[in-house]
Computed example of a mutant assay.
Amino acid sequence: NGTYATVFKGRSKLTENLVALKEIRLEHEEGAPCTAIREVSLLKNLKHANIVTLHDIIHTERCLTLVFEYLDSDLKQYLDNCGNLMSMHNVKIFMFQLLRGLSYCHTRKILHRDLKPQNLLINETGELKLADFGLARAKSVPTKTYSNEVVTLWYRPPDVLLGSTEYSTPIDMWGVGCILNEMATGHPMFPGATVKEELHLIFRLLGTPTEETWSGISSNEEFRSYLFPQYRPQTLINHVPRLDTEGIDLLSALLLYDTRSRISAEAALQHPYFLSLGNNIHNLTDSRDSSLFGVFRAVVRPRSRRPSFWPI
């Protein structure tokens, strides 16, 4: 059960494949929820191996049913099943797939706006796919003003926490950094219960922002009203010891206060952190059938029957 829908597991009589049926109840007074309409209109045009496939739409008087491809798990469940200790090799593979799907969206000026482990689905092969585009929005130019009450608190960037409503693709990249940290450590990076607590956790680790780290912050009224102590930035490697030097560098680039400096999904895909996966991963097309593992099996462990990216 979700905010505006219930998801069922089903089987296609036509193909006998498993599917996920997202049933959205329609209230006669209001019609279809805007989140459902937004999700349908966006997903119809997003065809990528790392984005969940919308197979069909069934519209009746009482409900709207979206027929999605079925995936066994999500990243939150996967972490739980690993005892919150993921293989660092798998962290890298999942991270690359997340960035691939996000780069495809951002190139088409679509922001996800609700990235969190529960919205990253994983199948038994090890493919990761972005899902739940109910809060996603197509970004028009010039940037429109959006609600600042969108992203789940733990993955919400400080600019949005401090009231910014004019944001773009960097809003998703902060969430990617939080997810990378969570995969590497096994626990959420900034699990704040309120906006003030969330900001306090961020500033305590990354340092209270200054004009040097975040141009214009000293004139932000909300920031000034909180009267945060002047924390110095801590060394990230001490908090994420399992990440290598390149991984820490990528994490730092994702968690920059200034949105203009925060690394993009496209640039992140070229980061040295992914060099160990080989060059062939950059030759993949955007096709739904263009899975990372078509290339990856040949790179890692070609003779193994058990996928080398899946924990034993």
Rank of each mutant, 00 (worst) to 15 (best):
P117C: 09
V141F: 14
G126D: 03
T145P: 00
N84P: 00
V91A: 08
L98R: 01
N90V: 03
A131P: 02
L128T: 11
L102S: 12
G126H: 02
K129L: 11
I110A: 04
D114C: 08
F96V: 05
R108H: 14
K139A: 15
G134V: 02
R137T: 08
K144I: 11
T145C: 10
N84E: 13
K92Y: 05
L85W: 01
E127S: 12
K139H: 12
Q118W: 07
K139Q: 14
H112R: 04
H112S: 14
S140F: 10
H112G: 11
Y104N: 01
L102W: 10
T143R: 07
R108Y: 12
S103N: 14
G134D: 02
I93D: 02
K129I: 12
H106Q: 13
L98Y: 02
E124F: 15
N123F: 08
K92N: 06
K116E: 09
H112C: 10
M95P: 02
M95I: 08
S103E: 12
R137E: 11
S87H: 03
F133W: 04
Q97P: 00
N90C: 14
H89D: 13
L85I: 11
P117V: 07
R137N: 13
L135P: 00
L115V: 07
L121N: 03
F96L: 02
L111Q: 04
S87P: 01
R113A: 11
L128I: 13
T125S: 14
E124I: 12
Y104Q: 01
L120D: 03
T125R: 13
N123Q: 13
I110W: 07
P142K: 03
I93N: 02
S87Y: 02
Q97H: 11
R108S: 15
A138C: 08
S103C: 11
F94D: 05
K92Q: 14
K129T: 05
M95W: 04
D132Y: 06
K116Q: 05
V91L: 03
F96R: 00
L121W: 01
L111D: 07
R108P: 09
D132H: 02
F133P: 09
